[in-house]
Computed example of a mutant assay.
Amino acid sequence: MGRRTWGWYVLAVVVMAVVTADVLVDGPLRHLDWTVHRFCDTRVRGGWMSVVHVFTQLGQRGVLAKYALVPLAILGIARARSLRPLLVPAVVVLLLSLLQVGLKSVIPRTYPFSDTDILWKHGDAYPSGHTLNGFVLVWVAIELLIVVVPVLDRWLTARGRRDVALVTGFLTGAALTLADEHWLTDVLFSLALGPVLLTGLVAAEPFTRPLWRDEPYRGRYPRI
């Protein structure tokens, strides 16, 4: 693991710590939350909201499961004639769920669409789990797609699969903020954590590869 990778890890930790501290002490970022909330609540409507909601679906676990994860897992199992293609996705979903529940329980927070920002009350807005889904679960879906259609590996390289997941994660976070479904700081925390989780999945790929399929991947994952 190179210095550049460690540099990104350190930066992510710093961002998460700063954002969390700001939320706890009612700092300038939390005040910015209200500015963004008021803007999105009054300006992002109608057709713009319809467009934004398309991208929020990238972080909806139910939508991803219904239209991507479950169908692709079933096809992968049928192709491999084994339950192996289900193992990694199931473990990733379970660990991601536990992580999200754990993080959200630390600082319970109400959502912006309630027009209240209260900590330590009923709510689990902080941080944004949907944004993390946009990074992690989309990557899982892409890997399952390669399992089902191995020929795609010839043009959708390992770097490309990683980059797609990075883009969808950031798009999901931006869309959730514009749709007023999460405070900006909820999303900022997850935009820092999401790439770290994705990097961990990428680093573990050589060890988890036999669980996905028998055929070797054509390219190694690049360092991030």
Rank of each mutant, 00 (worst) to 15 (best):
H122L: 09
V51N: 05
L201Y: 12
R218T: 12
L69S: 06
S128M: 13
V23K: 09
I77G: 00
F39C: 12
L103C: 15
D214A: 08
V148K: 02
K121P: 11
A175Q: 12
A21R: 15
L132G: 14
G59M: 02
V25D: 05
D214H: 08
K121L: 11
H130K: 03
Q60K: 05
R81I: 01
L87K: 03
G46C: 03
P210E: 10
V196D: 14
D115Q: 15
G62P: 01
L103D: 13
A125Y: 03
T131A: 13
V13Y: 07
T56L: 03
L132S: 14
V164W: 04
V101T: 14
V92K: 11
L32W: 04
V36H: 03
L98D: 07
D117Q: 15
L58Y: 03
N133E: 10
R79K: 00
G173F: 04
T208G: 05
L171F: 03
D26H: 10
Y9M: 14
V202K: 08
R38E: 15
Y126I: 08
I107E: 14
L87Y: 02
S82Q: 02
A203T: 11
V13W: 10
T199A: 15
L87G: 05
V148N: 07
G129L: 11
V148P: 08
P216N: 15
L58G: 06
R38D: 14
L144Y: 01
F135P: 00
E181V: 12
L197P: 13
V23Y: 09
V70G: 02
V54P: 07
G7P: 07
G59W: 00
H130W: 03
A203W: 06
V23A: 13
Q100W: 09
V187Y: 08
I146M: 07
T20M: 14
T177Q: 06
F207D: 03
L176S: 15
V147E: 04
L99D: 07
D153W: 02
V164D: 02
L83D: 00
T56F: 03
P216G: 11
R109G: 06
V19Q: 11
D124K: 08
L95Q: 07
A68Q: 01
S190N: 09
L103S: 12
E205Y: 01
L211W: 12
L87E: 02
D163F: 12
L58R: 08
